[in-house]
Design a protein around this nucleic acid. Structure first.
Lengths: 158, 158
DNA sequence: CTCATATCGTTGCAAATGAAATGACGTCAA
DNA sequence: TTGACGTCATTTCATTTGCAACGATATGAG
């Protein structure tokens, strides 16, 4: 009879969003994980490198919504696996320039079409209106989260 | 020149969804966390109990998208904090009946309005069309994730 | 009744995680 | 040039996580 009654977690937006993201992420991991043994963090680093070329750890972690140690460790594993290369930046030796190796590029050549197909499979379930709305909504929710205090990651400057 | 070029992670749906969920979750945690020292897992258990009354661990973990040990540990912490009560089910002594204590109910009486206000604040940013679309889209994405293999949690029966 | 099998919740353990500390390097004012 | 301060990446440490194993209880076949 208090206001706690009638509160259904299943209809609570933050919860629903978290579950949807978790399910989609797990489904996608089932696509790229078994194929090349990548974790989510590793996939993100690879994806960013494939698109952006040689880039520092800072550059990656600022753009990829992961904290610094996570990017650093993912990069180390990827280097060990021979998929990326770490070399000191000639201009600023604090920086580590990350880039895909030949094998890394091959992996991404294999994976990118799968990623696109996976995304297409998701979007195919939605109407055009829903697709447009989803795009707008995700942008707005991310903004809202940032403003309200949910920095998520990327906290080196405080 | 290969198909890996032009793949922008920032526009990849699974990634965008994960980031949005993470940001929203962090923002919401900033609302309920400092107030009563709850983690996400603990909040979910509390929310479910507030709505559903005495319930077994199995019941909770099946409905709350967390694995069994996570629910178990969250329940232990909540019991230690005096917010919930664990007692053996009289009919089946394998089961543990979880229920809110008086203090637990008080916490939820405090939190549920905050949760509703937080959600309202998010929804206020969306147009009515976007709200409707979001609802449909989240449902579809969860279904898609389940079908494609992303079970997320709830894996005791396989 | 008895034994095999299934279910429930907890616990062990290895791996992942995040915050803060560390070490290496750059930059800027004096 | 020197020295204080800021930045970059890694590492350290305590905590959290997820999976598998475990003990306890329940159920059903013979």
């Amino acid at each position: 009879m208090t206001s706690t009654a009638g509160f259904d977690l299943d209809e609570f937006l933050p919860y629903r969003l978290a579950v949807a993201a978790q399910r989609v992420s797990a489904a996608f991991r089932a696509v790229y994980g078994p194929r090349h043994g990548l974790s989510v963090a590793e996939w993100r680093v690879m994806a960013h490198l494939a698109n952006a070329g040689p880039v520092s750890v800072r550059e990656v972690f600022a753009r990829v919504a992961m904290d610094k140690p996570k990017v650093s460790r993912a990069a180390s594993r990827l280097e060990l696996a021979g998929l990326i290369e770490k070399r000191a930046d000639p201009g600023d030796r604090r920086l580590v320039a990350l880039s895909l190796t030949e094998r890394g590029r091959a992996v991404m050549t294999d994976l990118v079409p799968l990623a696109r197909a996976f995304e297409a499979g998701l979007l195919a379930r939605l109407t055009p209106e829903e697709r447009a709305a989803l795009d707008a909504v995700l942008t707005k929710l991310v903004e809202a989260g940032e403003e309200t205090g949910g920095e998520g990651a990327a906290s080196d400057a405080l």
